[in-house]
């Protein structure tokens, strides 16, 4: 952590960390503690009086069926996004790993969606599936599927999942291919000499060896689906129809900024903080293992 050879204490190190620490205190720690505090308050609808209600807001959440629904929806959404994005990326990475000539060209052509903002990704997909004009909505109509994600909750969910997964394929592909290429060639050759064909090699040698990366990506994808997809949902469905695509983060925003239920929104924020902390801990406990591959 600290260098064996280092400088002694003076005013200088304090000055060096000051900008970072001040910003952290003002824009992170203070607001987070405010959220914690507010989660214990109840404010009336007009914002005229506030009352300290201890854990009532949390108790309300715990007994609120809608909140459980949001939780379940978020879990479904995250697992779907992670599964599709990782599965698709894994197949492509396994193929690219076999190719010697042109592998870099394929990588170039696959990684750019990472750079697309979530809300922009949302715009692309909402356009393709626009019920009246969208090219896919039209194609689906032709084969007899009535597509209207503005009315049909399942279709809306499918659309945000697709848009979210589409954007995340690039990231997963990049890490999968890096992990596969860091497996020593001699190991693959040894398996080939042992008589394992390409498919068998993939499942018995390559896939087990990239498990740490797979696990790492799973955590990253869940974090992504939990938090970074806000823009996609906001652009595509606004959580609708009838809350069919309202995930936890969207609900915090909606209840707080739109519904002005400050205490309830703050309590939800605290729940989300706990989830982030848990995910961060998982990710960091595991980082040691991952280092071998990068």
């Amino acid at each position: 952590m600290l260098k064996r050879v280092h400088y002694g204490s003076s005013i200088l190190p304090f000055l060096l960390v000051a900008p970072q620490i001040i910003i952290t205190l003002v824009f992170f720690i203070w607001p987070a503690s405010q959220a914690l505090y507010q989660s214990l308050l109840l404010e009336d609808a007009f914002g005229l009086s506030t009352e300290f209600v201890w854990f009532d807001n949390f108790a309300d959440l715990a007994t609120n069926k809608l909140y459980y629904d949001t939780f379940r929806r978020t879990a479904f959404f995250s697992v779907s996004v992670a599964g599709i994005a990782m599965g698709f990326a894994l197949v492509l990475a396994a193929m690219a790993d076999r190719i010697i000539k042109g592998a870099l060209t394929y990588r170039t052509l696959l990684i750019w969606p990472y750079a697309v903002a979530p809300v922009v990704a949302g715009a692309l997909w909402v356009f393709m599936f626009d019920p009246t004009l969208g090219i896919f909505a039209y194609a689906l109509n032709v084969i007899g599927v009535d597509w209207n994600h503005k009315l049909n909750g399942s279709q809306a969910m499918a659309l945000v999942v697709m848009a979210s997964a589409w954007k995340q394929v690039a990231y997963n592909f990049l890490f999968f291919i890096a992990a596969m290429q860091s497996i020593p060639k001699s190991l693959i050759e040894a398996a080939a000499i042992d008589g394992a064909g390409p498919v068998k090699r993939f499942f018995t040698v390559i896939f087990p060896l990239i498990t740490p990366t797979t696990f790492f990506l799973l955590v990253v994808n869940v974090v992504y689906a939990f938090f970074d997809t806000f823009g996609i949902i906001h652009a595509v469905t606004q959580g609708g129809p009838a809350k069919a695509t309202e995930i936890l983060v969207y609900k915090v925003y909606n209840d707080g900024f739109v519904g002005l239920d400050l205490g309830g929104s703050a309590a939800q924020s605290v729940v989300l903080m706990i989830i982030v902390i848990a995910l961060t801990v998982i990710q960091f406990r595991y980082i040691e293992k991952k280092v071998e591959y990068s």
Partner: peptide
């Protein structure tokens, strides 16, 4: 303290920030 910022994405502290 810096590490803590990792656990506080803007999405979870929208209003107070």
């Amino acid at each position: 303290m810096i590490f803590l910022t990792l656990m506080l994405p803007v999405e979870v502290r929208i209003l107070p920030t």
